[in-house]
Amino acid sequence: MEFIIEHLSKSYDGKRVLRDIDFAFESGKIYGLLGRNGAGKTTLFNCLNGDIRNDTGRFYFKTEEGIRDARPEDIGYVLSTPTVPEFMTGREFLKFFMDIHEAAIREPKQLDEYFEYMSIAREDRDKLLKDYSHGMKNKMQMLINIIAQPNLLLLDEPLTSLDVVVAEEMKQLLRSLKTGRITIFSTHIMDLALDLCDEIVLLNHGELETVDKSDLDVGGFKERIIAALREEEND
C-alpha cells in the first residue's frame, strides 16, 4: 500500500505554504518530517486530516485492488497538545469509541486490556479526563487513534513535553505499530527522528524531499539535513 500526494498546494493571504507537493509514502515505514518553524508541517497535516481545504491537489491510497481516496477512518492524527473530551472518564471515552466503531474494529478486546496495553494505571481509568496529566492524556489520545488501526498515522510532535519514561514507551509503541500502515512523524528533535524513523523527509520551500542517507554515518547524515534546512534560510 502507498499513500500518494499529488499536486497539493495551500496558500494563506497570498503566501504559498505548500507548493504543488508530489510524494509517495510506503506502508510499513515511519517517516520523520522535518522542517523549519513555519515551514508548513502542521498545515500539511491539517490538509491531510481534512481540517483545512487544500487549494489544489489530491491524496489517495494505492493498493493492490487499485486506488481510492482517503476517508476519515483511514487517518489517525495525534497532536502535540493532547486533546481529549474533558467531561468523560478514560473508560467512557474508550467505550464511546468502541461503540461507534463496533463494526470496523477487528478482534475487539476488553476495555481494560487496552488500558494495560497503554500502561494506564487501573486507578486512573475511571477518572475524568480533565484530571489526567499531560502524559496520560497523550497516551489516551494515542490509544484512540490506534485502536481502529488507521492506514495513515499522523503524529505532530507527539513526544514533546513527555517525561522520559512515557516518551520511551511511546517510541516502543510506534515501532510496534508501523507494520501495515504509513506513519508520518513531525518533530523538531533530530536525534529522535534519526532514532525512530526509517526515512527522513524535509518540508522545504513548501515541497517535500527525501534526504538520502546512503554511505553516511549519523554525523554526516545530520550535517546533510542541517545543510538542506539552512539552504532555505539562505534563499
Binding site: N49, G50, D51, P72, E73, D74, I75, G76, Y77, L79, T83, V84, P85, E86, F87, F97, I100, H101, I144, N145, A148, P150
Partner: peptide
C-alpha cells in the same frame, strides 16, 4: 468541553 477535542479525531468528522 467536547467538540474542541473530538473534532481533532477523524472519526468524529
Amino acid at each position: 468541553n467536547c467538540d474542541h477535542s473530538l473534532l481533532t479525531y477523524s472519526f468524529y468528522k
